[in-house]
């Protein structure tokens, strides 16, 4: 009983997505399906960027449906623009702890420890423009950790990285999620990603989100909607 989408209907213009499933706590679930099928729409409903037309979003039995995005137990990584380019890494990450101009020494300390955890030790004062793609991903992950929310939504967060870096980041995310006991939903269009880190998978296709299925089973015997996409 963790994240439950109860008879959820989300509409965006003429598009409609029906979602009715639940994923257990501390699980790592991939969200897979053809592009344009509504994977991001599903995330928007869970994170609060889109108000569902019908149904409810429940977390541990708590109704989230009417709460604003900043007030949900949800932390999200977007495909890009996760970090403000006009701030340093430290300022960007620190926003997860405090909105004040200056961080308290305790917060500062916390930021530095988390940066060290993702392999960015000593880079607190770097500007975003001085970072490589891999470092930006690590910084975004650091903020996810500092936000300290139990539910992580990852919207193809490492799609801009090369294959080696991407698999390194995925492993890091999985390890961190295990350590933090987070529940993770991750949109991906790459079945290898799902294989690598997500034991469970939700299939989004033809206006419906169903699951969760065992990832290996789903990918080995895909239903027609998925097999068309996987080719």
């Amino acid at each position: 009983m963790a994240l439950k989408l109860e008879h959820l209907i989300v509409r965006q213009g003429a598009f409609q997505l029906i979602a009715d499933f639940e994923v257990p706590t501390h699980s790592f679930t991939s969200v897979i399906g053809p592009s344009g099928a509504g994977k991001s729409t599903l995330f928007d409903a869970v994170s609060g960027f889109l108000k569902p037309a019908k149904g409810r979003v429940l977390w541990q039995g708590d109704d989230l449906t009417n709460r604003p995005p900043g007030d949900r137990p949800v932390a999200m990584l977007f495909q890009d623009n996760n970090l403000f380019p006009h701030l340093t890494i430290g300022q960007n990450i620190g926003l997860a702890l405090s909105k004040r101009r200056r961080l308290s020494p305790a917060h500062q300390d916390h930021v530095e420890r988390v940066l060290a955890r993702v392999g960015l030790d000593g880079m607190t004062d770097r500007k975003m423009s001085q970072l490589s793609g891999g470092q930006i991903s690590r910084a975004a992950l650091a903020r996810l950790l500092l936000q300290d929310r139990p539910l992580w939504l990852l919207d193809e967060p490492f799609s801009a990285l090369g294959p080696a870096l991407k698999s390194e980041m995925l492993t890091l995310v999985r390890d961190m999620a295990t350590e933090k006991q987070a529940t993770v939903l991750m949109i991906t269009h790459d079945p290898t990603d799902a294989h690598a880190v997500a034991p469970l998978s939700v299939l989004v296709a033809e206006g419906q989100a169903n699951g969760p299925f065992d990832t290996a089973e789903l990918l080995n015997n895909p239903p027609p909607a998925l097999s068309d996409y996987l080719g």
């Binding site: 960027f49 604003p68 995005p69 900043g70 701030l87 997860a96 909105k99």
Partner: peptide, 16 residues
Amino acid sequence: RTADMLGLTGWSRWRW
């Protein structure tokens, strides 16, 4: 959306 996710509203949204 990043600002929404971080709960940046009102003055802190302007500031940051």
